[in-house]
Design a protein around this nucleic acid. Structure first.
Lengths: 189, 189
DNA sequence: TCCTGACGCGAGTGATCACTCGCATACAAT
DNA sequence: ATTGTATGCGAGTGATCACTCGCGTCAGGA
């Protein structure tokens, strides 16, 4: 029943956008009365939060799983490409919801969850960077991970949402070049 | 007088956030009556749009000027660093407003303006990439420019807003490494 | 001095929407 | 059968806020 409401919230957000996402509309979509919604959720924000949490966990899981499975493996270009593929696939799963989450929701509501997601991926990346062969050229794994995660995240999101005239395989090549180039760039010192 | 209202809108947005930014509050801040506002603006969105436009033009001008001045110069690492510095300085000028623009405003309202800004910078970057020495390693300047602009933009914005424990000079070094590494990365083919 | 019209004023209005409350219904226990 | 309880219902309510409208006020011309 809670599930039905959350599912309706997700559908309304994805199909009609944030502005149209009133509590009554969610209730109607779920086939329940507005009053019943408040037996399971304290307020509207809680419903939206539950929707975001579901999507966020799902997305994070796909990327983190790909990373976590391979941390410790002989680091190579295959690992980088696989992670990028996982990120793209995860974001492509529900582009409408992605659009609403990144462009329509006031970020204050879900900032904490989003940074938690990023932190998780960042830490996995930092670990991988630290144990990968040739780690010495990149002085601080934490900083490198921060740079890579934010750069890739934005590029992947914008590619999915703006659909620029760049084929998917080409994008993957570019992102791989971005990562490998950055990691092998000469440093002052 | 229009100017007074826009200035008040900017102040309210930056200091109190988007939620508190009601028309009456803007009017009060400007020292005019709510009614008078509507002799100069058709609706609330127009006020916000004017605020964003001012900030956006200002920001774009600083970055674009730095780029435009040097397109055609002997391309080198100095050019990259100078542009990154210009970007950071521009975003640091009003962090509060930057936060509201990137995190609180529903992006639908100012998406067009923001993409226009990005397109302008992207085209300048593409031009620079095309004429720079060693351009042959990067097959498509438009694609490379798209990658670089989106990556740098997000990193710069997040650095200003989240203030991670990375000193500014260090950030600049990382971003320079990101750009130069990407541009010199080996490509399949 | 009187007229006039444009500018600005601010209480008011209508619509929206999150949230509530008293009622109906269906089911379990006696 | 009858009562007690929990579950869901949906019209209603209060507050918020973008926007309006009729009135004062104070220019400058006659």
């Amino acid at each position: 029943m809670v599930e039905r409401i959350v599912e309706a919230g997700r559908a309304v957000l994805a199909e009609e956008g944030y502005d149209a996402c009133s509590t009554n509309r969610i209730a109607a979509r779920a086939g329940v009365s507005p009053g019943s919604v408040y037996q399971y959720f304290p307020d509207k924000a809680a419903i939206v939060a539950a929707v975001i949490e579901g999507w966020s966990d799902e997305t994070a899981e796909r990327v983190a799983a790909s990373l976590a499975d391979r941390v410790g493996e002989p680091g190579g270009i295959g690992m980088v490409r696989a992670t990028i593929e996982a990120l793209l696939s995860a974001l492509e799963a529900d582009p409408e919801l992605l659009r609403v989450v990144s462009e329509e929701l006031p970020m204050a509501q879900h900032k904490e969850r989003r940074t938690a997601l990023e932190r998780r991926v960042r830490e996995l990346t930092a670990t991988w960077l630290a144990v990968r062969p040739g780690a010495s050229t990149a002085p601080d794994p934490a900083v490198s991970a921060w740079v890579l995660v934010l750069a890739l995240e934005n590029l992947a999101v914008r590619w999915v949402l703006d659909s620029p005239p760049v084929p998917r395989e080409r994008l993957v090549e570019e992102l791989v070049a971005l990562v490998t180039g950055y990691l092998s760039a000469p440093r002052p010192g």
